[in-house]
């Protein structure tokens, strides 16, 4: 394990070193490709500016995913309860994913203005599909025998949902939410570049014509770090809220010692 960490650290260090060397020896214009050291410098020097804009973008991503989760959950439950609704709406769901976001984004900005609203709309639109599909799937894949068992206990449709199907769908919801982190980052930047007054996407769009390339790279670095952290946070929440999903992982993290079965 320690060796593996060492190896990946060495690879990253090697890549950064090669990049640094290339910018110095290769004679590349620093406005075209800044050295890693220049990016690090920009991170420190522009920290106030970067932070200010990061908070805006992080808010758009976080809130956008929140909106997408809420909509996807409501939609998944509705479709789960009604076969008619499922048949009627499933093609529309797939359709929502074929909307060309880069074309729609400026239209949404023109309609909703430069504020938070169009960003939330775009992030939620992009994230909705990857969340709703695994959630519906997890709800539908609940063991038919388990449903039969609940019926033999006289459980109502709602009780079966609350006691069996909803908890069973939790891992599906988490899978979708984790996937959506990657899409949300991309969507938020796209939305900001389509028209905004702040945010990291806006900062990058401004930094390039101002020849502040290092600042643009710093912004990208911050955004990637944020996406990775958000993904890790969701994975952690999943492990706390749905630990049965990966029993091996739970056992590795810390197994309760169980008393010995007196009947064995």
């Amino acid at each position: 394990m320690a060796t593996l960490t060492m190896i990946s650290l060495l690879i990253v260090a090697g890549l950064i070193g090669a990049w640094e060397l290339y910018t110095h020896v290769g004679g590349v214009d620093e406005f075209l490709l800044p050295a890693p050291s220049a990016v690090a410098e920009a991170l420190v020097e522009d920290r106030g500016l970067l932070w200010e804009n990061f908070v805006v973008t992080a808010g758009e991503i976080g809130l956008g995913i929140g909106v997408a989760v809420a909509l996807a959950l409501a939609c998944a439950v509705a479709l789960h309860f009604s076969a008619d609704l499922r048949r009627a709406l499933y093609p529309l769901l797939v359709g929502s994913q074929t909307i060309p976001i880069p074309i729609v984004a400026p239209l949404l900005v023109a309609w909703l203005g430069f504020g938070l609203a169009p960003k939330l709309a775009i992030v939620a639109l992009v994230c909705f599909f990857p969340i709703v599909v695994p959630t519906i799937d997890a709800l539908a894949r609940v063991d038919a025998d388990l449903r039969k068992l609940m019926r033999s206990f006289g459980a109502s449709r709602w009780q079966t949902f609350r006691l069996v199907e909803a908890p069973a769908a939790l891992p599906g919801l988490f899978t979708g939410a984790k996937l959506s982190v990657a899409f949300a980052t991309f969507a938020a930047i796209l939305a900001e570049q389509s028209g905004s007054e702040n945010g990291l996407g806006h900062l990058v769009a401004q930094a390039i014509p101002q020849f502040e390339t290092a600042r643009a790279y710093a912004a990208v670095l911050i955004l990637s770090a944020f996406a990775v952290a958000l993904f890790g946070l969701l994975a952690l929440a999943e492990r706390r809220l749905a630990p049965w999903h990966r029993p091996g992982g739970v056992l590795a993290v810390g197994e309760r010692r169980l008393p010995v079965d007196p009947h064995r």
Binding site: D143, D145, L146, L149, M150, F153, G154, A155, Q159, T160, L163, V164, P167, L170, A242, P243, W244, P247
Partner: peptide, 21 residues
């Protein structure tokens, strides 16, 4: 197949029919 709920402890699994009632 025991059809126990993977997220519930033995106590809650044993009481599932009561919850359903």
């Amino acid at each position: 197949r025991d059809l126990l709920l993977p997220w519930a402890g033995a106590l809650d699994n044993a009481g599932l029919a009561l919850r359903a009632a």
